[in-house]
Design a protein around this nucleic acid. Structure first.
Lengths: 168, 168
DNA sequence: TGCATTAATTAACCTAGGTGAATGCACAGG
DNA sequence: CCTGTGCATTCACCTAGGTTAATTAATGCA
């Protein structure tokens, strides 16, 4: 899956690229840096849906495809370089093919995540994160890792300190 | 999304259509009846990944696409009529288009599920199930609903009895 | 450089939901 | 018609992780 890297544009850390309710959704190819997508639930709590380090594609595939409003926010956790993929009026055969591949890769990621969330303890979830995003554990604040795992920052801190003890 | 319903074949309740480790994976269009897919985790526990009532497509999209082995089992919870979609050697433009639509629909379902699993209490999960599969609550045993929600049958029983009390 | 804000840690306490075990039901097979 | 097996329910008990709050460590930012 190749993109024209010369057309990438810079976004500063903290920039919000997509908000809940937005339509005409783009997708974002991360050339450099780090994006994330997240929701804010009915109780006002933030839940990270996915991280987007280099080479990942971030966006709401589903809402973009059906041209409905999204529930997901997207913002930049680091100064980044991204390529914006415009929403298509007309889907070409070529687009369907590359889109299929992207969508299926996403299904795989989500499938693992669902199975993980249904069966894993907090400690196992942390292991899962370390495998899924090996280079992120010291790039993102722990409260965000916790949010991604569906646990509190305190619980994550506990896990890490027990783990540190266990290897002494 | 139309299929040739005349080519459907019957499967008996209890038939296992796909096992962990299988390759050359088919997808199954449910014409009538009910399938489910599930995993068995490292501790030997069964977790239902999705139900497949009428008009749903069941299978491991990801593993089928990359032609790897699956982690998912698929079996029939009722006597059913299904259409088997063979794994494709060559993906035509037409297949890419319909496949894209299926994959994206699946992404949407999984996205909701992830967000639900990360933020919802057992009671909220049950509500979610009732909305997602309105006609299934009295078609599948409660222990399977519990397995789908990621809670124990006892917890589901508690929820239901509290709910029954609350409407008295 | 200092001040203000946010992140991480730790500890005490609480609660939702898990575990194990007992009981009653339902229905499948002989 | 009986009997076994598995499902649902209920209860007592337990524990992982949530909550609240205080303390310290980082990280802006002026």
């Amino acid at each position: 899956m190749l993109f024209d890297r010369s057309s990438s544009k810079p976004v500063n850390k903290g920039t919000i690229l997509q908000r809940e309710g937005d339509t005409h959704l783009k997708s974002y190819v991360v050339v450099k840096g780090l994006l994330r997508s997240y929701i804010i639930d009915a109780k006002g709590k933030e839940h990270i849906y996915m991280f987007g380090p280099e080479d990942w594609i971030v966006g709401d595939l589903q809402a973009a495809f059906i041209q409905g409003p999204t529930k997901l926010f997207v913002d930049a956790l680091e100064d980044s370089e991204i390529i914006e993929l415009e929403p298509a009026k007309e889907i070409t055969d070529e687009m369907a093919r590359t889109g299929l591949e992207k969508a299926i890769r996403r299904v795989g990621t989500l499938q693992n995540r669902v199975l993980m969330l249904m069966s894993a303890t907090a400690w196992e979830r942390y292991q899962f994160f370390l495998e899924e995003y090996p280079d992120l554990y010291n790039r993102v604040p722990q409260k965000m890792i916790a949010s991604y795992l569906g646990i509190t920052p305190q619980a994550l801190s506990r896990i890490r300190s027990e783990w540190a003890k266990s290897i002494t």
